[in-house]
């Protein structure tokens, strides 16, 4: 190879490799992150419930069995609100529409915004737990010292595997005051 062609082929190699490097950087943002979220949504893994309102379909109530629904609440690190379910356990029939409320109180002397993040155990049950109304769909602002009852309406699917007798629904409450102020955006979940 002459010096000229060697130099040329080196710059060809470098150009190709540089493109690969840039593409891999982009890959993280435009493929890995969305793919992860889509997979979690579609497969119902990670104990995440759907972030959207369930469209109710006509169905009958399966009164032959009862499922225990346990409610758990956790405050994320540094979140000062009082936050707990008003009923810790509900016995429900698959297919029936159920209502409950969570109590929340902002004890501080300033307006705060909270976001509740749900998680379901066992993970397999996440696909069969449908929310038609949930306070976790929106951020919850509370004035200083204010309290509120936050509604949750859900249906347990009739197709819930028979071996699942208890479902635990856990909410972690995050302080998103700063985030809400800077973005003004509502995070659906």
């Amino acid at each position: 190879m002459t010096a000229m062609t060697t130099e040329k082929s080196i710059s060809h190699t470098v150009a190709k490799l540089a493109i690969v490097a840039v593409a891999m950087f982009a890959f993280v943002f435009v493929v890995m992150v969305p793919l992860y979220n889509v997979l979690c949504d579609v497969l119902g893994i990670n104990g995440k419930t759907s972030g959207e309102r369930y469209q109710v379909v006509e169905s009958s109530v399966d009164s032959s069995r009862e499922v225990r629904i346990q409610f758990v609440s956790t405050n994320n690190d540094g979140m000062p609100w009082e936050f707990h379910p008003t009923q810790s356990v509900l016995k429900v029939n698959p297919g029936a529409v159920n209502n409950t409320v969570f109590y929340a109180k902002n004890p501080l002397g300033k307006v705060m915004v909270a976001q509740a993040i749900p998680s379901i155990a066992p993970i397999r049950a996440a696909d069969y737990f449908h929310k038609t109304e949930c306070f976790c769909f929106n951020q919850q602002p509370l004035a200083a010292g204010a309290e509120t009852d936050m509604p949750l309406q859900f249906i347990v699917d009739q197709d819930l595997p028979a071996d699942i007798k208890t479902i635990t629904l856990s909410y972690t409450l995050f302080d998103v005051t700063a985030m809400a102020a800077s973005q003004g955006a509502v995070v659906a979940r």
Binding site: M32, V33, Y36, N37, C40, N46, G51, N76, Q115, I117, T172, F174, D175, V176, M179, S182, Q183, V187, A188, R189
Partner: peptide
């Protein structure tokens, strides 16, 4: 102010591990 790994903003810490 993004929330790639923050559950509060709709992200997921497990994504970081992946």
């Amino acid at each position: 102010g993004t929330s790639f790994f923050s559950a509060a903003g709709g992200g997921d810490p497990v994504l970081f591990q992946h």
